[in-house]
Design a protein around this nucleic acid. Structure first.
Lengths: 210, 210
DNA sequence: GGGTGTGAATAATTTCACAGCC
DNA sequence: GGCTGTGAAATTATTCACACCC
C-alpha cells in the first residue's frame, strides 16, 4: 500500500506524542485530543490512522500503548541504515550531539570534512575522512544515506562525489544551496531560511489586512 | 491577493537561483531551465510566476534581472522585523553564524539561555538574557518573532513565556518537541528528524518494490 | 521555432457527515 | 452519549494543452 507524504509526516508526530503520553502513564486518547495537541483536525487524525486498519475503539478512543506499537511498526526500518555526515561544522556537530540522533534506525558510519584539524580524527566516536574520498569511503562502508551539512558553495561538489558511489540511495540536505541530484536518489531538504522567509512573508500578509 | 504556501516556497527558490544566475551574468532563462535546476515542472514555474502579472516574454523567456527584482518585490518586508533567539547552543550558534542569517529583513534583538556562562554576555554582538525574562525583554524590545532552538524539554515553557508578550506574532521552532501555541501566533517548524524519518520511510517503501 | 500565460482537467489532500459500535 | 471508520464532498495543488506572441 502506498502512503502519502503528509500522512507519514503526521504519523511521526502522532508517534512522538504517544511516547510522551505513554511515559505519563496515560492509557487512552481520542482523535480530538491528539488533534488539539498537534494543531490537526480530529477527522484528519482518524483518516490517517484508518489507512492501517481499525485500531481504535468506537465510543472510547485509541489505546495509547497499542497505537504506539502500531505506528512504530508502520514506521519501522527493515534494517539499520548506514549514513554519513558531510560537514562537521557547528550545524553538523549540533546534529550529532542531538539525542534524537541516537536512533536504532541508522548508524553514522563516516564523517567528511576538508578541515585538516578534523580529517583523520574521530569526532564523537566516528572517523572523519577528507571530502575528496567521499565516493570511495561510502562504497567501502556501504553507506546509503548522506546528510549534507556543508557550506552552500561546497554542496554540489559533495553531492557529485557521493552520487559516484553506487550505494547511495538518499540525501538529506541542510543547505539552502540549489543542488541537482539524479532522479534515482531520494532527496529531502531541511531549509531553515525558506521557513523563516515564509514566516516573514505570511506575517506581512497578515498585517496587510489591518 | 492571497498566495498559497507552496507557491511562496518555490518563489524563494526561484529567487535564490536567479541570484546565482545574475552573478554569473546570465541575461535570460526559460521556465524549463529553471524547473530542471530545481526539480520542478516548467508549467509549475510559469503558473507561479503568472500570479503576479506577465513578467516573461513569449518565445524568449524571463529576463533574469527583471524577474529577480520582481520576486524580490513580492517577498519584500515592509520593515525590519525584530527577532529573538532562544537557546544559544550548538544549533543556535550555527544559525547565528550562517551567512544567510545576515538579512536586511530582520535583526536579532535578543538572545535567551539559562546557562550562567552566557546570560549577561554578548554572543556574536547580541545581548543574552535569562530565559525567565523572555516576556519582559520581548515586550521592551518589541520583538515579533521568536526562533526556538532550545532542548525539547524546555520548548513549551519557553513558548508560554514568549506568548505572554503582546508583541509576539510568529515562532519558528527547531525542536521536535510538540508545543501548543495560541491560534493568533503564526507557527512554523523546521524538523530535521521528521525529514530524516520520512527519508528512511520512503527508502524502505522503495526497497519493498524490489 | 520557441516559450509564455492561462483556462480546463486532473490529481492530491482535507474536511464533512453520518452509520456503526462501545 | 461518545468516538471511530469511512465514503462522499470540498478544497487545494499540479499538470496539461493550446492560444498567443516574439
Amino acid at each position: 500500500m502506498k502512503v502519502a507524504e503528509p500522512t507519514v509526516e503526521r504519523l511521526i508526530q502522532y508517534y512522538r506524542l504517544l511516547m510522551l503520553m505513554k511515559e505519563e502513564g496515560r492509557k487512552v486518547v481520542s482523535s480530538l485530543q491528539m488533534g488539539e495537541m498537534l494543531g490537526i483536525k480530529a477527522s484528519q487524525v482518524r483518516k490517517d490512522l484508518s489507512y492501517f486498519g481499525e485500531i481504535g475503539k468506537r465510543g472510547v478512543g485509541y489505546h495509547v500503548n497499542r497505537l504506539c506499537a502500531h505506528i512504530e511498526n508502520i514506521l519501522a526500518s527493515p534494517r539499520v541504515w548506514h549514513v554519513a555526515l558531510a560537514g562537521v561544522g557547528n550545524l553538523g556537530t549540533a546534529l550529532m550531539g542531538h539525542t534524537a540522533f541516537q536512533s536504532y534506525k541508522f548508524s553514522v558510519e563516516a564523517l567528511f570534512d576538508i578541515d585538516p584539524e578534523k580529517v583523520g580524527r574521530k569526532v564523537m566516536g566516528v572517523e572523519c575522512f577528507h571530502s575528496d574520498d567521499i565516493a570511495r569511503v561510502m562504497e567501502e562502508r556501504n553507506i546509503e544515506v548522506l546528510l549534507l551539512a556543508v557550506p552552500a558553495a561546497a554542496a554540489q561538489a559533495c553531492v557529485d562525489k557521493a552520487v559516484a558511489s553506487p550505494t547511495l540511495k538518499g540525501i538529506l540536505a541542510f543547505t539552502p544551496a540549489t543542488v541537482v541530484v539524479p532522479e534515482r536518489i531520494l532527496f529531502y531538504r531541511v531549509d531553515i531560511f525558506v521557513e523563516l522567509e515564509k514566516l516573514l512573508f505570511f506575517l506581512k500578509e497578515q498585517e496587510k489586512q489591518h
